[in-house]
Design a protein around this nucleic acid. Sequence first.
DNA 1: TGTACATCAGTGAACGCGCGTTCACTGATGTAC
DNA 2: TGTACATCAGTGAACGCGCGTTCACTGATGTAC
Lengths: 189, 189
Amino acid sequence: MRYPAAETAEKHIRILEAAGSAYREKGFSGVSVSEIMKATGLTHGPFYNHFNSKEALIAEALQHISDGTVNLTDGFEASEQGKADFVRAYLSEEHCNGSGNGCLMASLGPEIAREPTYKPTFTRHVTGIISRMVERFPWSSKARARKEALRTLAAMVGAIVLARAVDDDELANEILDGVAEGLAKSDRP
Amino acid sequence: MRYPAAETAEKHIRILEAAGSAYREKGFSGVSVSEIMKATGLTHGPFYNHFNSKEALIAEALQHISDGTVNLTDGFEASEQGKADFVRAYLSEEHCNGSGNGCLMASLGPEIAREPTYKPTFTRHVTGIISRMVERFPWSSKARARKEALRTLAAMVGAIVLARAVDDDELANEILDGVAEGLAKSDRP
DNA sequence: TGTACATCAGTGAACGCGCGTTCACTGATGTAC
DNA sequence: TGTACATCAGTGAACGCGCGTTCACTGATGTAC
C-alpha cells in the first residue's frame, strides 16, 4: 500500500543507520540486506525502492557514518586537556567494546582498502578528521601540526584494531592505556 | 588415485600458504575454498582430506602466517638504526601495496575481532611481536620498553590500515612517512 | 624379487542453503474533477 | 466537500547463483606374502 510521503525519507535514514551499525559491527559480508531491513522493521522487498544494490547502500551508509563522526573533535576543548580527553574517549573501553557506533577507520579500514568503490569516501573522512584535529588542538608548531595529528590518528586507530582483536582484557587495556598515555602528552615534548 | 606420502604434507602447506595470502589480500569472506584449492593446483574435493571445515583452515592458516611473520624483527640490527629500518620496512610502499605476504594485524585485525575463534592465535601473535621488539631494539629504559614497543606497534598498524584504505597516493605516503619519521627517533627523546 | 590387494588423495557431479535481486500483487494516500 | 482513480512503498513468494560440504568413484602407491 501507499505510505505517507514523510515516512519514506525517514525510513531511508533508518535503513542507513541500521546498515552503518551492522557493517561496523559485523563487516560488509557479515550482514545481509534482509537483516538490515528487518532491523528497520520492514521486509527485504522494499529495499530496492530505496537503493539500487547492496553496494549502493554500503556507499551511502559509509558517507552517512562519516557525516556523523567526522566532527567528533568538536565536542572537546581546544586545549591540551581537550586533546587528551579526545584521545581518552577514543581509546576507552566503551569504544573498544562497541564498534557499532564507533570509528569507521578501525572497524572497516581493511575491508574498504579492498574495495576501490568505497575509498574516495574513506579518504575524505580521513582528511576531514585530520584537518579538524589540526585546527582544534594545540600542536608543537603550526608547521608540525598536520604531521603530529596524523601520527596521533594512526596510533589511535592501530590501538583500537589491536585491542579489539586480542583475547586478553589485560593486554587490551595495556594497549589502550599505553597509547593514550603516550598521546596525551604533547607529541614531542 | 593414491599419491606419494611426501606430497600430501607438502600440499597441506601449499594450501595453507595460498590461503594465508588470499585471506590477507581479500579477507575471509572474499575467498572461497575452491579458489584456494585452485591456487594450489587442485580441485575443491580433496580439501576435506586436509581440513575439517573452512573455519579450521582459517585457524590453521592464521597460525601459519603468525609462525612466518612473528619473528620479522630478527632480520634487523639490535640498534636504534635497526629499529628505524624495521619501522621503515613495515611502513614501506611495498608492504602498503602488497598485503598478501604482509602484516596479519593490519590486514585481518578487524575481521579477527569479530570471530572469537581466531582471537587466541592473534593474541599470541601480538604478544610475540611485542616481546621480540622489546628484546631486540633499544628503548629509553627497561621499565618503559614494553610500553614504548606497543605504542610503536599501534602506530605502525594504524598507519598501514589508513594508508591502504585511502585513495590518494600522496596522502598515503604522507601517513607512512610521517609515522615512520616519528617512530625512527626514540619514542620519547 | 614379483604378484595381489588394500589404501586413500585425488576427481567432479551433486546437495542444501542463504544470499542479492526480481516481481505480481496490495491497498492507504494523494490528486483530479 | 465528496467521489473516482492513479500512485507507489509496502508484502512475500520466487529466481539464479555461488558457496561450503558430501560422496561414489578412480587408480597409482605402498604393503603383505
